[in-house]
Design a binder for these strands. Structure first.
Length: 281
RNA sequence: AUACUCACUG
């Protein structure tokens, strides 16, 4: 089963849902009974595509048919699906339903909802989630903190986010690359590019390796601030060090250069990148 | 290391 599940997961992740279905049929034929993990994989891939009704069909039909109960992970995926659709009322209903059926919400459940409420600027609801977590004895994890940091940057202030980071460290959680990238983005969007760059220095100093998202954040920030030439320089410097950019690293630079009236530079950049093969797409 | 949640872009 584990082998099949892994294969199914791989197919789903590469968009081969048809093949995944075939594999599911095959395992049944070979008398290998799919388990809750198998179905949760299917539920989750539908939910990630916001096809929540398909996900529900898996639960209500396929799983019910062979008497497999959804578990916390299954429900978490469903909640995530509703959150992606902005249907937070329905997400909350799933939360109630899972409790009713004996699946205890876990930290992931709450992180998912917390993130969604912040996105909708439902601060009241977000606070409620945090309260519920502590009532139920669920310990916030690094994802919880990262979600809160982003939320605070968004609805409160960078200062509030920094305070939270202090207190998370008191609880034994070290800021990770996501924490830093969140802050970097917030600094960039607030126009504090200098601070963003010094934060980058700070993360290097504590031994965190910036990744593609980190650099994309900075590149986008620079371009937004009409410093596309600096962004280009950064891009080329990183490429020379073997960094693998994505389309999100490259596109804003070309657009930014054009917008700033550097059409020739944009063209040159484009050509250079193609020639050097320094482009992942 | 069989499945769920957080950062850039959309």
């Amino acid at each position: 089963v584990v082998t099949y599940n892994s294969l199914i997961q791989g197919l789903c992740n590469s968009g081969q849902t048809k093949q995944a279905d075939l594999l599911l049929n095959e395992m049944v034929k070979r008398n290998i009974t799919p388990d809750v993990v198998t179905f949760s994989i299917l539920v989750n891939t539908h939910c990630k595509k916001r096809r929540v009704s398909r996900a529900e069909a898996v639960i209500d039909e396929k799983m019910a048919q062979i008497g497999i109960q959804p578990n916390t992970v299954t429900y978490n995926s469903l909640i995530h699906g509703f959150c992606l659709r902005g249907e937070l009322d329905k997400a909350a209903k799933v939360l109630d339903a899972m409790v009713g059926k004996g699946s205890a919400p876990n930290v992931v459940t709450y992180n998912t909802l917390l993130n969604a409420y912040f996105r909708k600027e439902r601060i009241d609801k977000a606070e409620q989630i945090v309260n519920n977590m502590s009532c139920r004895g669920i310990i916030p994890d690094i994802v919880t903190y990262n979600t809160l940091v982003k939320g605070l940057c968004y609805v409160e202030s960078l200062g509030a986010a920094k305070e939270l980071i202090e207190s998370m460290q008191d609880c034994g959680h070290t800021p990770n690359i996501v924490t830093y990238s969140t802050l970097l983005d917030s600094l960039c969007k607030g126009g504090y590019l200098d601070k963003a760059l010094s934060l980058l220095g700070g993360m290097l100093k504590v031994g965190l390796k910036p990744n593609t998202v980190t650099y994309n954040t900075l590149i986008n920030g620079l371009c937004r601030a009409r410093k596309s030439n600096d962004a280009m320089e950064l891009y080329l410097r990183l490429c020379a060090k073997g960094w693998q950019p994505t389309i999100h690293s490259y596109e804003p630079i070309v657009k930014g250069l054009r917008r700033e009236g550097f059409s020739k530079e944009a063209f040159g950049f484009r050509r250079k990148v193609q020639e050097d093969g320094c482009f992942l797409g």
